[in-house]
């Protein structure tokens, strides 16, 4: 081996080796295990091939299928609501901080971003108290303006939205930073030229800011989706998937089936389904964006 080859391999081996062993091999194992009956308490060699049975079961009409399809729907709804709130808010906050020329904008940026540093477990604990129907300050404040009291985490109608809101509270600062990064890439001269032509506020936003932020927004949406799929702590700790399964989301459900109940094959089939759903969604979003670009 030449000296160059040797040093190239030496530079790449530690990281790519770790990624191969702890990410790529497990992906392959997940796919294989999805077609087997296997207890997660026993070695991989005990897995027996059963074809598509796991997939039939998780999409079937039995209780396994009902729970899984519920979790899939909850996660889809949760992700949609998160993205629908995070993107507009982060654009608003980003423009307020970056474009409005307000004193103290950097302080706001710091406060917003600081929430992203807070461990999710602490967020979950604090919000479980903030949401408390009788002792929590949120219902108290809403009461002052004549709203409520709302049941928040204790009703199947509002529990999932409540988890979405705490997630938005934690993450919106991070996405605001991404949007600011996108805004700094828009040349000031474009705005000035448009203003010469008489364009004002909403027109500047609609014809310059938004179109030129498109790639940033697309990237943000994908990251927000991947983050939303990972929601775990508030569900595991506070709601346990309830009430009546309304907050039973994929990460929580797959872990409960595959690790806690040790139904490794069944859990793996759920993981594969989740992965496929994500790949299809992300590919479709990018394909749509590209087609619009060509117009």
């Amino acid at each position: 081996m030449s000296g160059f080859r040797k040093s190239m391999v030496a530079m790449l081996a530690p990281s790519l080796g770790l990624i191969a062993i702890f990410i790529l091999v497990p992906i392959a194992l997940t796919v294989w295990l999805a077609f087997t009956k296997w207890s997660a308490q026993t070695p991989f060699s005990t897995a027996t091939f059963i074809g598509l049975d796991n997939f039939r079961e998780i999409f079937g009409t039995g209780s396994v299928g009902r729970d899984f399809k519920g979790a899939l729907a909850n996660t889809a709804l949760y992700s949609l609501m998160s993205i629908a709130l995070i993107l507009p808010l982060s654009v608003l906050f980003g423009m307020l901080i970056h474009q409005a020329d307000l004193r103290g904008a950097n302080i706001l940026r710091t406060i917003l971003f600081a929430t992203y540093m807070v461990p999710m477990i602490a967020v979950a604990l604090v919000f479980s108290k903030l949401y408390s129907p009788s002792e929590g300050p949120i219902n108290q404040i809403l009461g002052w303006v004549g709203i409520g009291p709302l049941p928040w985490l204790s009703s199947p109608d509002t529990a999932l939205v409540s988890v979405v809101l705490l997630n938005v509270w934690q993450q919106v600062g991070y996405f605001t930073i991404l949007i600011i990064a996108g805004l700094t890439q828009i040349p000031q001269s474009i705005y000035e030229a448009a203003k010469m032509d008489g364009a004002r506020g909403p027109a500047l936003f609609g014809f310059i800011t938004l179109p030129l932020l498109k790639r940033t927004l697309l990237f943000s949406a994908v990251i927000a989706l991947i983050n939303a799929v990972q929601v775990f702590e508030p569900v595991a700790l506070v709601t346990q998937g309830g009430p009546v399964g309304s907050t039973n989301v994929m990460t929580y459900h797959i872990r409960r089936v595959g690790i806690e109940r040790a139904q490794g094959g069944l859990g793996s089939a759920m993981s594969v389904t989740l992965l496929l759903a994500l790949v299809v969604t992300v590919t479709a979003v990018f394909a749509l964006a590209r087609r619009e670009d060509r117009r």
Binding site: I19, I21, F22, I23, L24, V25, P26, I27, L29, T30, L33, A40, P43, F44, V222, I226, V229, Q230, F232, M250, T251, I254, R255, G258, I259, G264, G267, S268, S271, V272, L274, L275, L278, V282
Partner: peptide, 16 residues
């Protein structure tokens, strides 16, 4: 791999 939610590999990784 940056875009992979950890839950997808959690079960075999735990065993591995």
């Amino acid at each position: 791999t940056m875009f992979l939610p950890p839950i997808v590999t959690l079960i075999p990784l735990y065993r591995l």
